[in-house]
Design a protein around this nucleic acid. Structure first.
Lengths: 209, 209
DNA sequence: AAAAATAGGGATGGCACCATCCCTTTTTTG
DNA sequence: CAAAAAAGGGATGGTGCCATCCCTATTTTT
């Protein structure tokens, strides 16, 4: 059974990261720790295959490079056999090198760390040994979220809204089919159903229909 | 139709906040913006009832108090009729006062901002006019997340694991029944089912069974 | 004009989860 | 001891979502 630990003080972020880890492993147990103390206790009593760490924890100075390194170093030494992934909001290449030197397998900026990226990061680690993803804002349009839509329908609208100019809808349906491992016809159906729902309720549709 | 906008650069946090907003309103549309530019465009073209803002956006100095205030101020002026909620990782009472003065209805630290808190914040706003929730680490035990459990079962395990010493399980079942608006017997059933699943797979159970 | 893409539906079975009610045995508590 | 709490399980119907296959107009492209 795959075991992972997420050390992050921001609750919503911690839960989101735990979700990402769960989504990357078929069957697993994921523990979430708000503080280094809680994490330390768990690391002493249990074995972990993966540890995700945000170095900006309560009780430490987030601007002090020494504090940040100390947190990660302490965790790595407490779980030498695990894969260690550092996640931070204030990321830079210099710090990434530092963490890599002390044994981290990945360094991720929180901006741009989207659902699904985690799996790619794990791929990077197993093929190249290290994964670096620095923050950068790339969105040009907002995300839309409609409470009337089912997850599948929402996804269909999302992908269609981000369609590059000139790309045919059919291509999006194929892409969606690939990503969700479903039939392209089904993807088309979800999109049409979603669109119909929004129209029926008089919603202003996102650009690109 | 209730319309909300979440301005936050960290993708997972933005999506989580959008979820929280959705959970607080029966039927709604929630937009997510990664940058102030995207947000500004939307604020110009649409009306919003609620705007959630993280002042630490790309392109601005997160340590500059002036930059942080400028971001929030610009958004408030662009949507004077909306409710404005400021969410930040580096929160302090002083900044909270500052944002309150320029018209924010709530100031929330990311640490301790858990699922469900958002609804309480909205209650605070409508009753007291302002809601202040500063960050503080309160967990003493880690959270457990098992991929084999359904959401309901996971919830049951969660609540039982955080049971205060001396509290009877029956009381937890009642509490769970209240929170999920279900029967106490059903809550008990979920807990037992979850427990059985974990035992069957040989999982080390969290403290408190 | 022919072909492809798009819009707009209807009907289907499967399945996971929700929620409830029922039952027995063992352990703990007053 | 008696009563309550807890452990452990079986059976049930409902519901929403997933996924598929089918159909017909209309529009756009080639």
């Amino acid at each position: 059974m795959f075991r992972a630990l997420v050390v992050e003080d921001q609750t919503l972020m911690r839960l989101a990261l735990m979700n990402e880890v769960q989504a990357s492993f078929e069957k697993c147990v994921v523990l979430g720790a708000e503080t280094l103390n809680i994490a330390t206790v768990e690391l002493q009593n249990n074995h972990f295959d993966l540890v995700v760490i945000d170095p900006g924890l309560p009780g430490f100075d987030p601007t002090s490079q020494g504090d940040r390194v100390a947190v990660v170093d302490r965790i790595i030494e407490a779980s030498p056999s695990a894969i260690h992934i550092v996640v931070t909001g204030s990321d830079n290449r210099c710090e990434a090198d530092g963490f890599r030197r002390i044994g981290a397998a990945a360094y991720l900026g929180k901006t741009g760390l989207a659902p699904g990226v985690f799996s790619d990061v794990l791929d990077d680690i197993s093929t190249k040994g290290f994964s670096l993803r620095l923050s950068r804002a790339v969105m040009t349009k907002p995300d839309y979220r409609f409470s009337v839509l089912t997850p599948r329908e929402q996804e269909a609208i999302d992908m269609m809204a981000h369609r590059a100019p000139g790309v045919k809808r059919k291509e999006i349906f194929s892409l969606m089919a690939d990503r969700l491992a479903i039939d392209a016809g089904s993807a088309e159906k979800y999109y049409k159903q979603a669109r119909a729902k929004l129209m029926r309720q008089g919603h202003p549709l996102p650009q690109g229909l």
